[in-house]
């Protein structure tokens, strides 16, 4: 479904150039859920943004569904295959567009028909009733906003969803609801997920395999079973697993 090879992403020009992602390589098969973990600044979100076409300064090969991506432009077919859900549901929805307007605009851009019935279906899919259709973001809680953001991503009927810390701005109780929703949607629609998170237990819950990143490089690709047993091959992975276990008094 997704192949990434020799991916380099940088920001800025030569004297101040920052290489945010260095020679990254991974493959995600269709139907799989793949996690990217690491500390802030390790380049995990940057990879997602480069795939989604939000960063033009990259080199290497990204292949989605057998088609190689160009650096600068993405065609319509791409956005019908790949959609992204962002970290902060408070920032990713337009404050003066109602839920209906957000979804209708997306559907129109994707060239869909039967917009009215599709909106009802989408809201139903993400567990929001009809009553939410004409609300504005400030009338929604954080969890409900994230559901709207997921509905917007699903509007294009994509097959690959890029999830950038989809629950880290939410309370644990709401996080559980959203993670369940994402698991259900993946089952129903046969989606492929690439999920970025700093929370190992969330990735452990959602994903089949994961890549551990440090300083822009992938340190290790491992299965979730290996993560559970704490069997990282690299020193850094083991350190990350211990640190995420909670606070150990010095």
């Amino acid at each position: 479904m997704l192949n990434v090879k020799n991916l380099n992403v940088w920001f800025g020009l030569v004297p101040d150039r920052v290489n945010a992602v260095k020679n990254v390589e991974f493959n995600v098969t269709a139907g799989e859920s793949f996690g990217l973990v690491g500390e802030s600044g390790s380049g995990k979100s940057t990879i997602l943004r480069a795939i989604a076409g939000l960063i033009p300064t990259w080199s290497g090969d990204i292949t989605v569904d057998g088609k190689a991506l160009k650096t600068d432009r993405r065609d319509r077919a791409f956005f019908k295959t790949v959609q992204m859900v962002f970290q902060d549901p408070y920032a990713s929805l337009h404050p003066r567009h109602s839920v209906d307007a957000v979804l209708a605009e997306t559907l129109r851009l994707q060239g869909m028909d039967n917009i009215d019935s599709r909106i009802t279906k989408l809201l139903d899919d993400v567990g929001l009733g009809k009553g939410f259709r004409f609300r504005y973001p400030h009338q929604l809680s954080g969890g409900q906003r994230q559901r709207v953001a997921i509905a917007r991503a699903l509007a294009a009927e994509p097959r690959l969803l890029l999830l950038d810390e989809p629950t880290s701005a939410l309370d644990v109780s709401v996080q559980a609801e959203i993670l369940n929703l994402l698991a259900d949607l993946r089952g129903e629609h046969g989606l492929t997920y690439v999920m970025v998170s700093h929370d190992l237990s969330v990735v452990g819950h959602m994903c089949d395999r994961l890549a551990v990143m440090q300083h822009g490089r992938i340190v290790e690709v491992m299965s979730v079973d290996a993560l559970r047993s704490g069997a990282g091959e690299q020193e850094y992975t083991r350190h990350l697993i211990t640190a995420s276990g909670g606070y150990q008094p010095a």
Partner: peptide, 15 residues
């Protein structure tokens, strides 16, 4: 409702 690494489960209980 917290996912736990050592105790995987299919669905998280919701509050």
């Amino acid at each position: 409702s917290l996912p736990r690494l050592e105790a995987p489960m299919e669905r998280l209980p919701v509050l």
